[in-house]
């Protein structure tokens, strides 16, 4: 990926619909909690969110996928961005408040596919804006 600025942007996700091996994508195993944990490690190291880590309208535990957009610290400044830190804490708190959903059975599988699609749809615009190419949804 061509470096355009002093910092770079990555997408942390557990959604296989983005397709494997994409430049600037970091794939995490496990549910949304795993994605948030990875983001937490990054935020503690000075990375900041470019898109809010929470969805509009889904509790993170009700959704099997989560795609987050983060920007690296630029230069040597690795101090924690408090806004990102607060948003992350709110997201983790939201995880604790929600009950994990079980996507069992056929209807669960269909819903899972829909959630994967929707995750891509909701983040597509944001990823395009930061030049992380998104796949065409088919």
């Amino acid at each position: 990926m061509i470096q355009k600025t002093a910092s770079h942007v990555i997408c942390v996700t557990n959604n296989p619909d983005w397709g494997p091996g994409r430049d600037g994508f970091e794939y995490v195993d496990g549910g949304p909690w795993g994605v948030f944990k990875r983001a937490r490690d990054l935020v503690h190291g000075g990375w900041r969110f470019l898109a809010h880590p929470l969805y509009g309208n889904f509790n993170p535990m009700r959704h099997p996928y989560r795609t987050l957009l983060l920007e690296s610290p630029s230069g040597g400044d690795r101090s924690v961005d408090m806004e990102s830190f607060s948003m992350l804490e709110a997201a983790l708190e939201s995880c604790r408040a929600g009950m994990a959903k079980n996507y069992g059975g056929e209807s669960g599988e269909a819903a899972r596919r829909d959630f994967a699609k929707l995750d891509c749809e909701l983040m597509r615009d944001a990823l395009n804006r930061y030049c992380l190419w998104a796949p065409v949804i088919s």
Binding site: L54, N59, S86, M87, A90, A91, E93, S94, R96, A97, G98, M99
Partner: peptide, 14 residues
């Protein structure tokens, strides 16, 4: 608000 089933969680994310 989304204060959880028991009404004891934080209602807003900010």
């Amino acid at each position: 608000e989304y204060a959880g089933r028991d009404g004891a969680s934080q209602s807003l994310a900010d």
